[in-house]
Design a protein around this nucleic acid. Structure first.
Length: 206
DNA sequence: TGGACGATCCCCT
DNA sequence: GGGGATCGTCCAT
């Protein structure tokens, strides 16, 4: 299937965030193909106190200020990685955090990467595989080396997946942040059992 | 040069 | 539902 073109990532960030739902995130690792359908994302803007780019460009967040269509991977809590899709033209400093995907292909390898036995004993079985930003990174073998990867390259890319009807898209505040909670910049597929399980902020009534 | 803290996860109660 | 793990980054001395 065709990779999403660069122009997909050069549109307004909130629009791209919504449009990423249902797309297939593909990772080629050691000759193995891993595919996950994106079911939950969060947008991070430039004038946004919750965003890494809020205080300007630093060594850590420089990828976020690069051209859209690259992967911004950061390390946090001393043990976890999280992956973002950089959005907008170079210098913009916006991104979309991938919070959860539905495993489509390579489930066994994802389980190995997550150190979960075939019985799924750790956590609540299957749903625990990729339903969180750091879990997704671990399952897809995304770490420091993948920071800055071009999503039009051959190792990590995104393709058209399943169209998600507008009525199936939920919206809420973002999770795990202190500032910028008023912004309703988290988008997810309603009813998906692969959406993150952490205590969720109230969703919009509509 | 040091200390506070983080876009999290897991295990325990 | 709460706390500990664990360390890179940033900003204030």
């Amino acid at each position: 299937m065709q990779k999403l073109p660069r122009t997909f990532y050069l549109r307004p960030t909130l629009q791209v965030a919504r449009d990423l739902l249902g797309k297939h995130f593909i990772r080629i690792h050691r000759g193995i193909t891993l595919i996950g359908k994106i079911v939950e994302v969060e947008a991070y803007g430039r004038d946004d106190p919750a965003s890494h780019s809020y205080r300007g460009k630093t060594k850590r967040n420089e990828v976020m200020f690069g051209e859209g269509g690259h992967l911004y991977v950061y390390f946090t809590y001393g043990m976890h990685f999280c992956a973002n899709v950089v959005i907008g033209p170079e210098g913009k400093g916006e991104a979309v955090l991938i919070r959860a995907v539905e495993p489509i292909e390579g489930v066994e390898v994802m389980r190995e990467n997550r150190c979960i036995g075939a019985t799924g004993k750790r956590g609540n079985g299957e749903g625990n595989l990729t339903n969180g930003p750091a879990k997704f990174c671990q399952a897809f073998a995304i770490g420091r080396r993948e920071n800055g990867a071009d999503l039009l390259g051959d190792e990590i890319f995104i393709v058209e997946g399943d169209a998600i009807p507008a009525r199936m898209i939920g919206r809420s505040s973002r999770i795990g942040i202190r500032n910028g909670v008023v912004k309703q910049w988290r988008f997810f597929v309603k009813g998906s059992k692969w959406v993150s399980k952490t205590k969720r902020p109230p969703s919009r009534p509509d």
